Simulated assay, not measured.
Amino acid sequence: MRSDQVRLNCGITIPMVGFGTYSYQNDRKTTEEAVHMALKMGYRHFDTAKIYGSEAALGNALKEAFDNGSVVDREDVFITSKLWSADHHDPVSALTNTLKKLGMEYVDMYLVHWPVKLKPWASYPVPNEEDYEKLDLESTWAAMEKCLDLGLCRGIGVSNFSSKKIQHLVDFASVPPAINQVEMHPMWRQEKLREICEDHKVHVSAYSPLGGPGNAWGSTAVVEHPVIQSIARKHRATPAQVALKWGLSKGSSVIVKSFNGERMKENKAAFDITLDTVDIKEIDKLEEWKLMRGEFLCNHTTSPYKSIQQLWDGEI
């Protein structure tokens, strides 16, 4: 196995640096151009979701590359997509629709996007008061396992699950989750969650590994932190590379999201820098600050979560 990949508990390997396609600002053409550029730079893991609106653009760009034959074949690429909260009632149909948009026969990984169930019509990012339903995770997960049995995906996992929710899931799952994709960066280190996931051989994949700069809820606090900048100067690297390498050093894959060519190169090169023990210890002492707090799922009387503490089971 290559050093830039990790083997999951379901037996497949995932590239450690992934390319995120979430971006409401960008049109389909911009996304397709970014994916083509990413492929040429060596990115082989592509992350999307129904709610991102990028599945069709990602699929079209990948198919063009496959048909070209000179860059990659389907088996060279790892594709992750996610079950939106309004589709818990029928994950098989949801994944089938995702595959139609992608123009693919399967995805490599299918994740439950949030531990939240919404009414079937709620196909938008921020739910309304009347949109919530009671989450029956056992039924949702049984349908996710069916997606796996039908060959619609090669692995199944979750996103935005706390330690308690991971423990609950592995207690009843016939097939344990292969991945938990969560916010993780030098200022939100997920130490407890990483330990629980390691105990159950669940791979932690980091979204917003730079703190989500450019997102409405994100911040430049990570890359602007004096400790991160000091370590970057020491290694003649960029602050972004230091932040990404920190995540990689913890055994997590990182999902980077930039459509800027220079930043895409910079992010990909993070794998090649080396942080020493002192660097890691300094980063592990930073103050913590969770950025994607999920208030939008806690501000309705019908939501199962009355506070962000409930959503994250006190891990915030």
Results as ranks from 00 to 15, higher is better:
213 P>F: 12
13 T>D: 14
231 I>E: 08
289 W>S: 10
20 G>H: 06
212 G>C: 01
228 I>L: 06
55 E>P: 02
114 W>K: 12
88 H>C: 15
212 G>Q: 02
309 Q>D: 15
255 I>S: 02
66 F>N: 03
134 K>C: 10
208 S>Y: 01
93 S>T: 13
186 P>V: 09
20 G>K: 03
118 L>M: 09
191 E>M: 12
114 W>H: 08
78 F>W: 15
68 N>R: 10
288 E>K: 07
251 G>Q: 02
303 S>T: 12
23 S>N: 14
229 Q>A: 12
218 G>W: 05
111 L>R: 08
157 G>E: 12
177 P>A: 12
122 A>D: 03
26 N>S: 13
155 G>F: 01
103 G>Q: 04
302 T>C: 09
60 N>V: 09
196 I>F: 01
244 L>H: 03
266 E>I: 07
15 P>H: 11
83 L>R: 05
221 A>P: 03
135 L>N: 04
296 F>A: 14
282 E>D: 11
90 D>Q: 10
166 I>Q: 01
307 S>P: 08
9 N>M: 09
93 S>Q: 15
171 D>Y: 10
184 M>H: 11
284 D>S: 13
39 L>N: 00
28 R>K: 15
6 V>A: 13
79 I>M: 05
209 P>Y: 10
240 A>R: 07
99 L>E: 01
58 L>D: 00
33 E>D: 14
20 G>N: 06
177 P>G: 10
54 S>N: 04
315 E>N: 08
17 V>G: 05
172 F>K: 07
300 H>T: 10
162 S>F: 00
62 L>P: 00
205 S>Q: 14
128 N>L: 15
108 D>T: 05
138 E>G: 08
221 A>T: 10
249 S>E: 02
209 P>A: 02
159 S>Y: 00
110 Y>N: 06
71 V>H: 08
27 D>A: 07
29 K>H: 10
68 N>Y: 06
232 A>S: 11
96 T>P: 03
22 Y>S: 11
282 E>Y: 09
85 S>C: 15
18 G>D: 03
165 K>N: 09
191 E>C: 11
19 F>H: 06
201 K>G: 05
279 D>L: 07
166 I>Y: 00
29 K>V: 12
65 A>Q: 01
194 R>T: 09
135 L>Y: 04
138 E>H: 13
182 V>H: 04
166 I>S: 01
49 A>D: 02
69 G>Q: 08
17 V>Y: 08
208 S>E: 06
314 G>S: 13
118 L>H: 06
86 A>Y: 07
178 A>K: 01
262 E>R: 12
70 S>N: 11
214 G>L: 10
86 A>P: 01
91 P>W: 07
302 T>L: 13
72 V>I: 14
245 K>Q: 09
155 G>W: 00
270 A>Q: 05
7 R>L: 13
154 R>G: 04
80 T>R: 04
250 K>N: 03
63 K>A: 08
74 R>T: 09
123 S>W: 07
46 F>H: 00
300 H>S: 15
119 K>H: 11
96 T>R: 15
67 D>Q: 13
59 G>P: 01
216 A>W: 08
259 F>G: 01
201 K>E: 13
13 T>W: 02
194 R>E: 05
204 V>Y: 03
298 C>G: 10
176 P>V: 09
248 L>D: 02
302 T>I: 05
243 A>F: 06
241 Q>N: 12
19 F>C: 03
65 A>S: 14
121 W>H: 15
